[in-house]
């Protein structure tokens, strides 16, 4: 680990964070925030958290920024209202200072940065590292912990993605047929800035070329999660990003031809269902929920350890499906203000 590099990165991150809060123009703030996220990825990668860095690059910096940009586009990028908030800000500054100094006080108690024998690195994590191969035959310990040891967490996490999609869909979706005659919808139309339809051949062709490779790569990330960094979340987000790219470079009509609204809802649920379904099958086979080892009873030519490995692939596929479709669905909702007609 190059301490110096880390320190520089961390200082840059701090700078970006301050800038993101300081810049008045929302679009600028969002972009700086994207940079902040990418710098964060680098720090994490330096700290050997390659899966986290991967996820942050795809989810936090990538899709997250797209969401932010969509929102800024659908609302407004300038905030002209001025009111002196100095008192509040000062008060909050003191509150934050108190909390912060308390946190700084605890720093002395914390182990040094990179101390391999710190308690946090000893108890559970050493067990995972030393037993993952024997227990599950999966060399990527992150995957085995994610999908097996703490599989229940991951199922709920998939659920969170599902919830986010359903929630955003329920909040934002407005059906044209219902609002057409409505007076308010006309005002609503006026509020949303009009989009200039850019019909760029270059972008279209480039994305046309890119999308298949993106998707192929994403499938590789999903499938090869056992042996290399990656897995359902990362792969799912990349798949989702490819669909988002499609929607951005062409229009909603084309992307909705591939994946209609109805299909989106079904597939999001299906992804979680695959995950939970595997757990329930384990239940029916006499094991505990998500106890993949009992799947060896129905999977041909696998012992109980390989069954775990195979089942992990299954749940990763479920995760990928949910994440892909919900990222796409959330993008559709956010960028079109819930009307599903035209986006960024």
């Amino acid at each position: 680990m190059i301490i110096g590099f880390d320190v520089i990165c961390l200082c840059l991150i701090l700078l970006c964070a301050i800038l993101a809060l300081y810049i008045k123009d929302l679009m600028g703030a969002v972009i700086v925030f994207g940079a902040y996220s990418f710098l964060m990825c680098i720090v994490w990668a330096c700290n050997a958290a390659i899966d986290v860095a991967f996820t942050e690059a795809a989810v936090g910096a990538g899709v997250g920024t797209v969401f932010l940009v969509s929102t800024v586009y659908s609302t407004t990028r300038v905030d002209s209202f001025k009111k002196n908030r100095f008192i509040t800000q000062l008060l909050m500054f003191f509150v934050v200072c108190i909390v912060g100094s308390l946190l700084l006080l605890t720093v002395t108690d914390l182990p040094e940065w990179g101390d391999g024998n710190a308690p946090a690195n000893a108890h559970l994590s050493s067990y995972y590292l030393e037993n993952s191969i024997d227990d599950t035959h999966v060399p990527n310990v992150v995957t085995s912990v994610l999908a097996d040891y703490r599989g229940f967490d991951t199922m709920l996490e998939t659920c969170v993605v599902f919830i986010a999609f359903i929630a955003i869909f329920a909040i934002l979706r407005v059906r044209k047929s219902r609002t057409n005659n409505d007076e308010t919808s006309k005002i609503f139309e006026l509020l949303v800035p009009s989009y200039q339809k850019v019909d760029s051949v270059i972008i279209k062709t480039a994305s046309h070329l890119m999308i298949p490779f993106m998707q192929l790569f994403a499938l590789y990330v999903v499938a090869h999660g056992h042996y290399s960094p990656g897995g359902g979340f990362q792969g799912g987000v990349i798949l989702g990003a490819s669909l988002i790219l499609l929607a951005i470079s062409y229009d909603f009509k084309k992307s909705l031809n591939y994946l209609s609204e109805k299909k989106v809802i079904l597939l999001v649920a299906l992804g979680v269902l695959i995950y939970a379904g595997i757990g329930v099958i384990c239940l029916f086979l006499g094991g505990n929920f998500l106890d993949y080892s009992v799947l060896s009873k129905i999977l041909p030519a696998t012992d109980s350890i390989m069954a775990r490995s195979h089942a992990m692939l299954g749940v990763e596929i479920g995760v990928a499906l949910t994440v892909m479709v919900s990222m796409y669905g959330i993008y559709l909702c956010l960028s079109s203000n819930g009307r599903f007609d035209k986006g960024l």
């Binding site: 559970l124 040891y149 599989g151 505990n288 106890d291």
Partner: peptide, 13 residues
């Protein structure tokens, strides 16, 4: 007590 994935307590959930 219920172990998810049949992993013993501190290792599983």
């Amino acid at each position: 007590y219920y172990m998810f994935g049949n992993w013993p307590a501190p290792f599983g959930i």
